[in-house]
Design a protein around this nucleic acid. Structure first.
Length: 433
RNA sequence: UCCCCAGUAGCUCAGUUGGUUAGAGCAUUCGACUGUUAAUCGAAGGGUCGUAGGUUCAAGUCCUACCUGGGGAGCCA
């Protein structure tokens, strides 16, 4: 990278110096013979002041021809000025157009409908709010990787193309040579379990796919999931790691993303309140509580979105709901020895009504019981032969969970809809851009 | 798959019990202005009212179907 250019974010350290900056025109204001270019370069927003008698007639013509989103290079002196957003501005002495932009740039500094914005997602990404979300997302991903690296977890990348295996929900399928259909992975967990028997503590982090016709603010058909798997760790240890992880990630965002969270107008005290440990609520108790609050939920039902909100309303931190009925959960979860109607699992529900961000469990480690559960679910034992090998050859207590990245981003950013939490959201009706 | 809602200018919307030539703001073009903060002021251009039928003397407005989205449910991260 050439050092003769400065990023906008670095300019407060260059007051009094002449600098060159490259970026895009975000806004234009003219007032006779003095004009303002608001420029963005991804690192920040800069007010550039153009005065006709300084830039001369040629420079003024260059300015007059500028349009929104033209890419430009400007040169000038950095000066502190209270009237400039961010406190510094550049007095332009020279200006070069890099790439012009027609006057019909679709996204204006005003409100747009969501349909229009999603159709122009490739351009919408340039707006300050979307830039802020993208930066918070990247920080969350980095924090997660750091958290597991510090704890000596090994990152294992699992296949996206799989044979039919995993959970019951919808699969995307595609032809796969002479092997019949391949399916896009909806979890890396089963592969993660195999890797845990090799490496001890591992995690996977990658895209995952659900062909469900979900139309809600919490669902995408393609989303990123982080799935740790830990050998010789039970359900209690599983939850302890989860709450440490969430506390770590939230703290990192508060430390390093305060500017982005300010753009998003995030209620910071609500994030600052996120401290482990988080409450554990037994599913059976949760049902009683919910019925007391007027919910129609019956023991045995999974908790609906409204039930989750009701439950979380009493807490400032995320909560765990533990030990759901067997019928409501996946076949690989270990039966609860204290209550065989239930399994050793935990869902983490985020505060402020953001809902489930983590689903985790201790895995069934008994070969016979696992085989029976696969049969009970109407699944093919042959398809799971390699998975059963993990119980056949040196079975081990192990636990893990799946963290939904976009749901976590949505919650930490305090934004209303999951589709803003990923650069190019894939939903039922959106495959482009 | 089910329930609800919406489609009028490039964008965001208004449009009365059906009634003259379809309205505004923003954006665009032209003009004014030496410190603007989504600048302001003046002027101009810009429409197959989602599509197809139907009712009516008359439909942006009422009816039917379809299309395209949005919100929610279920499922889950």
């Amino acid at each position: 990278m050439s050092s003769q250019y400065q990023t906008i974010s670095s300019l407060p350290h260059h007051v009094g110096e002449t600098v060159r900056v490259r970026g895009w025109v975000a806004h234009l204001r003219s007032s006779g013979k003095v004009a303002f270019i608001v420029m963005r370069d991804g690192s920040g927003i800069l007010q550039c002041v153009v005065v006709q008698k300084i830039v001369g007639d040629t420079g003024w013509e260059t300015f007059s021809a500028l349009t929104l989103e033209t890419s430009v290079e400007i040169e000038g002196e950095v000066r502190a000025d209270a009237r400039a957003p961010g406190g510094v501005e550049v007095g332009v002495t020279n200006m070069i157009v890099i790439g012009t932009s027609p006057v019909d740039y679709p996204i204006q500094p005003k409100e747009h409908g969501i349909d229009f914005l999603l159709d122009h997602r490739h351009l919408w990404l340039r707006s300050s709010r979307q830039v802020a979300i993208a930066r918070v997302r990247a920080e969350i991903e980095q924090a997660l990787n750091d958290f597991f690296y510090e704890r000596k977890f090994v990152r294992v990348d699992t296949p996206i193309l799989t044979s039919a295996i995993g959970e019951r929900s919808g699969l995307f399928s595609t032809e796969y040579f002479d092997e019949g259909n391949a399916y896009l992975a909806q979890t890396g967990q089963l592969y993660g379990e195999a890797a845990a028997a090799a490496l001890g503590n591992i995690y996977t982090f990658g895209p995952t796919f659900r062909a469900e016709k979900s139309k809600t603010r919490r669902h995408l058909t393609e989303f990123w999931m982080l799935e740790p798997e830990m050998a010789f760790v039970d359900s209690a240890g599983n939850m302890q790691l989860q709450e440490e992880m969430i506390e770590y990630v939230v703290k990192r965002c508060i430390e390093r993303c305060s500017a982005e969270l300010a753009v998003l107008e995030r209620d910071m005290p609500k994030l600052e309140a996120i401290r482990a440990p988080f409450p554990r609520i037994d599913y059976t108790d949760a049902v009683t509580t919910l019925q007391g609050k007027g919910s129609a939920v019956q023991w045995g039902d999974d908790l609906g979105a409204e039930d989750e909100s009701l439950l979380v309303a009493d807490y400032a931190t995320p909560i765990f709901v533990v030990n759901y009925p067997k019928e409501a959960k996946a076949f690989y979860m270990k039966e609860n020895p204290a209550d065989p109607r239930t399994v050793l699992c935990s869902d983490m529900l985020a505060p402020e009504g953001y809902g489930e961000i983590i689903g985790g469990s201790q895995r069934e480690d008994d070969l016979d019981r696992m085989t029976q559960r696969i049969k009970d679910e109407g699944l093919s034992v042959e398809a799971y032969d390699w998975y059963l090998d993990l119980r056949r050859y040196g079975t081990f207590v192990h636990s893990g969970f799946g963290l939904g990245l976009e749901r976590t981003v949505t919650w930490i950013c305090g934004i209303p809809h999951i589709r803003e939490a990923i650069a190019f959201p894939r939903t039922m009706y959106r495959l482009r851009p």
